[in-house]
């Protein structure tokens, strides 16, 4: 299974029935395809709606109905629409239960970096969009990312090197190899893929972590 697919499947298990959920762009978007049966969540798009549905077929789209990526969406029965001030009141005000966000880096203090890559001296792109509000306002913040970059360097770090999106905000970190819970004393390894031992994981992970007494195999199904 592709790393990204495994991550999306595992991340979907973080969602509980009835939750208000905001999925970030990239890998988190795919999480919606793997939400377990019996789990109904209310998806928010931060440009201004709750309860959106799948991409419409050609001819069924509406020029005024799109998600925060500018892509056409549908609205499900029970949907609502609102302006950005209300949308971010929902986020900042603690009315989002869970957000799942892609990350460039995470660290053992629960920091996440996902908004700023240098494009010129002192200049960054792409920008935080709604991510700072989400990590500050959502009750549970889940970061998803591949364990290492293309050169094999760990992206689960002792300390983020890029500008952070939020300090100490993460609850859970999911890579294609492992799941970590972030606690006040550091990372706890709770799940690991079958072909890897905790010591082997340590060898490819910059961050320090302890192994949960309840460590189990990486889950792909509820």
């Amino acid at each position: 299974m592709e790393a990204k697919d495994a991550i999306a499947r595992r991340a979907a298990l973080e969602l509980a029935d009835g939750e208000v959920v905001n999925l970030g762009f990239g890998m988190p978007t795919a999480v919606a395809n793997h939400i377990p049966e019996g789990v109904d969540v209310i998806l928010q798009s931060e440009n201004g709606c709750l309860m959106f549905g799948p991409t419409p077929a050609l001819g069924e789209q509406d020029a005024d109905v799109a998600n925060a990526g500018g892509q056409p969406i549908t609205l499900l029965p029970g949907a609502s629409i609102f302006d950005l001030a209300t949308s971010f009141g929902i986020i900042r005000g603690g009315h989002v239960d869970t957000t799942i966000l892609g990350a460039l880096e995470v660290d053992q203090e629960g920091c996440i970096a996902n908004w700023a890559m240098p494009v010129a001296p002192g200049k960054y792109s792409p920008g935080m969009g709604g991510a700072m509000d989400l990590v500050g306002g959502a009750r549970k913040v889940v970061a998803v990312l591949q364990h290492a970059d293309k050169k094999g360097r760990s992206k689960v770090l002792k300390k983020c090197t890029l500008p952070i999106t939020g300090k100490g905000v993460l609850k859970t970190i999911i890579t294609e190899k492992a799941v970590f819970e972030v606690t006040p004393t550091g990372l706890v390894l709770t799940e690991i893929v079958a072909d890897t031992t905790p010591d082997e994981l340590r060898a490819i992970t910059d961050a320090d972590f302890v192994v949960s007494p309840d460590l189990c195999e990486y889950r792909l199904h509820a």
Binding site: L84, K123, S125, P126, G127, M132
Partner: peptide, 26 residues
């Protein structure tokens, strides 16, 4: 809050012709 979708803006930033001031969306 975000400029990364616009390649034309990134080019202007690199060329020193554009300053971007970021705020969290909310």
């Amino acid at each position: 809050a975000h400029t990364g979708t616009c390649p034309e803006a990134i080019e202007a930033m690199k060329a020193g012709d554009l300053d971007v001031e970021f705020y969290p969306m909310g």
